[in-house]
Design a protein around this nucleic acid. Structure first.
Lengths: 296, 296
DNA sequence: TTTCATAGTTAAGTTTTAATTAAGTGAAAA
DNA sequence: TTTTCACTTAATTAAAACTTAACTATGAAA
């Protein structure tokens, strides 16, 4: 089926409402010759005149007046449909998709802060390794640690982080040199570019070439942390993730070493989510919260 | 205000209804690459995915499903508006705009035939010298004698005519030569290209150079005929217009002279009127009626 | 009355948009 | 395994839309 001449009809509607081709042209950000032409073409296609041309003014013909209300309804429907697409279906619930490690190490300890800052929103947390599919799962915002290239989605960097040497208090003496102490201990690690780079930096700095990487490999940052807390050895952990454990005295970090990660924390979502009120509110809260920690 | 991406939305609606880009492309008379592109661009503009692409098939996402009903309504409204424009507001009345001479000499005598042929239509006759303005007057069809160039309107030639020498019976003897008889009589005429050309042809044929044109000039074909019936002289009249007077014995025409007019009888109206049922019915009737006379 | 300013028309030339064409992808069917 | 089919993508070509500029008609101002 052939498409109706939408562009001409849109120009017609604008001109009809404003009662002037010139004003319509301004409203449409085109020259008035363009409006004149479009409406002429439209009239040809419809086989009837919509405007009666007088010098310096145009008036709707009967047919033009008859047509207008239909277009009003039609364009109104389109507008409603499009604005519906952009609008937030659950304005009072914030559904997050986050890594389990981030959820347990960072987010959960701060729930009281969240409830204090944004009491009108209900928070729903979906801890998954893989970023949720925004088309099928009802997720508002993803929080991911990475480079920010999530295809088809918009992302915004909210914080960087750095890897530090973490261990159970007493396992390492922070006042004595590292090298000798480390060689006796397991290195607990998970795979990942930052972890690897930081290890290289550390080992070249301390001349630890002999220390093999394969001592204790765990494929999950939260478990690495757990093993470290349990005193299984030392590890490279993200500072923001151990913050809680430090406060509770479960972990200690060795001074004078920090590896700035290439990766960063990102808010990830379809572009239109960034316009939602609850999105902006959440962003403000989490950014403030992250900066608060930075100040420590 | 910027226009919504109507073309993309139209393609989307088609594809969504058919559940396939390929079928949509066929329905839209374009290649399927065009559909794919348009929908990709639309999705970019809306900032959300409308279709979920699987190999060899596409499915609507939730958002696509949500959008569709709005577009249905919208496009339905447009269609209704446009079809309303084309439709006949008074399907049972035929309003004609005709020359007064044509009305009296040709149309009125045939009203009984009209009523017999088309009993369900009511005929309204508007006899005016100037063709009606279809935008303001409620006229369905114009019948005009001319070349068919009526600007902004469509016209259709329905009959030609020829000029004949007419006079009151007895005024001229058809068995005797014309030349001697004419020179004693007034030439009654109105201005008009055909009349002039026919007179030139007649006078050169009969060598009547001396007979001046200015004997009795009347600016209305019906009045010329009336004066001729009254025996004021002879005239050049259109054969179809005198048909009635011949039957009633009011006029007679001289054999062996006929000047085929450049002008012809046209149905004139805005293009869309030609599609109306009543238009077609009227055309059929008048064409048959004109041909019936031709057969005489 | 003449001149000016305004809102519109039209035609020519340019830019933008949308189409086709052709090559590429990946899962299902043969 | 190879072929086929629906869709994607990129490059090119065709078509539509826009701008510019010259023109028209008329109401208002000089």
């Amino acid at each position: 089926m052939k498409a109706p001449p939408f562009k001409g009809l849109w120009y017609f509607k604008t001109a009809a409402e404003l009662g002037s081709f010139k004003q319509a042209a301004e409203a449409l950000f085109v020259t008035q010759a363009a409006v004149s032409q479009q409406i002429r073409i439209l009239e040809q296609q419809l086989g009837c005149t919509l405007f009666e041309r007088q010098t310096r003014k145009v008036n709707l013909t009967q047919q033009g007046q008859d047509l207008l209300p239909y277009l009003h309804k039609a364009f109104g429907q389109v507008e409603m449909g499009l604005s519906m697409l952009k609008s937030d279906p659950n304005p009072n619930t914030i559904s997050l998709s986050v890594l389990p490690s981030f959820a347990t190490c960072w987010l959960l300890p701060r729930l009281t802060s969240f409830n204090k800052a944004l009491p009108s929103y209900q928070l729903r947390i979906d801890p998954t390794e893989q970023l949720a599919d925004f088309n099928h799962e009802d997720i508002d915002i993803g929080i991911r640690f990475g480079l920010g290239d999530y295809q088809g989605l918009k992302s915004e960097l909210i914080a960087k982080d750095e890897l530090v040497i973490a261990y159970r208090p007493g396992l390492i003496d922070p006042r004595k040199p590292l090298r000798a102490q480390l060689s006796k201990l397991n290195f607990i690690y998970d795979e990942g570019r930052d972890n690897e780079l930081a290890w290289q930096a550390l080992s070249s700095q301390l001349d630890l070439e002999g220390h093999t990487l394969s001592n204790l490999k765990i494929d999950n940052a939260a478990l690495v942390q757990q093993a470290t807390v349990a005193g299984q050895g030392f590890s490279l952990l993200r500072k923001r993730m151990v913050e809680q454990s430090l406060e509770m005295g479960q972990l200690e970090i060795y001074p004078d070493f920090a590896w700035l990660c290439e990766y960063g924390y990102h808010l990830v979502a379809p572009e239109n989510h960034f316009e939602w009120a609850k999105f902006k509110a959440f962003r403000d809260w989490i950014v403030a919260e992250l900066n608060g920690i930075e100040a420590c």
